[in-house]
């Protein structure tokens, strides 16, 4: 059981979440111009990384918001939780700007209501043992 730090709700059991597969897979800009190979790549091919893997999660039982997570597929360590639309927080790269989940094209938010959250908040460092949202999760 993973303990996942939802950017809105704080630390929750994995059973409250839904897995969304590899993150940062953009819909083709011009689908009509793809050949069969490229279309197959978009439909059926996803990275199957052994190690740090950027993936999408949905807090389906909680706030029903999508977010991205960097997780090690061997140790299952959660290395970062960051908003949809934000760049993957690589160790070498500078931490991306705080983003708003609602501006991402695949966010389920109807308005611009999603709180801005720290892009590199990790499960362990920002998730208090409480049931409520981590400090600074909402503004």
């Amino acid at each position: 059981m993973l303990l996942i730090s939802c950017p809105n709700c704080g630390s929750r059991d994995e059973t409250e979440f839904h897995y969304g597969g590899q993150a940062h897979v953009a819909y083709p800009e011009n689908p009509n111009e793809l050949n069969d190979r490229e279309w197959a790549e978009f439909l059926f091919y996803r990275d199957n990384t052994k190690g740090a893997f950027a993936e999408r999660w949905l807090h389906s039982t909680g706030c029903r918001q999508w977010f991205n997570m960097l997780r090690d597929t061997v140790t299952y360590d959660i290395q970062a939780v960051y908003p949809m639309g934000a760049a993957r927080p690589d160790k070498s790269a500078p931490a991306p700007e705080s983003g708003t989940a609602s501006t991402a094209p695949d966010s389920t938010t109807t308005g611009t209501a999603a709180p801005s959250i720290a892009a590199t908040s990790t499960a362990t460092s920002t998730a208090p043992a409480s049931a409520t949202a981590p400090e600074g999760a909402t503004k």
Binding site: M1, L2, Y19, K50, E55, V74
Partner: peptide, 13 residues
């Protein structure tokens, strides 16, 4: 388990 994993272990739930 719903997520990708190479850990040869799964979740209790």
């Amino acid at each position: 388990d719903s997520y990708n994993g190479y850990g040869q272990r799964g979740s209790f739930h």
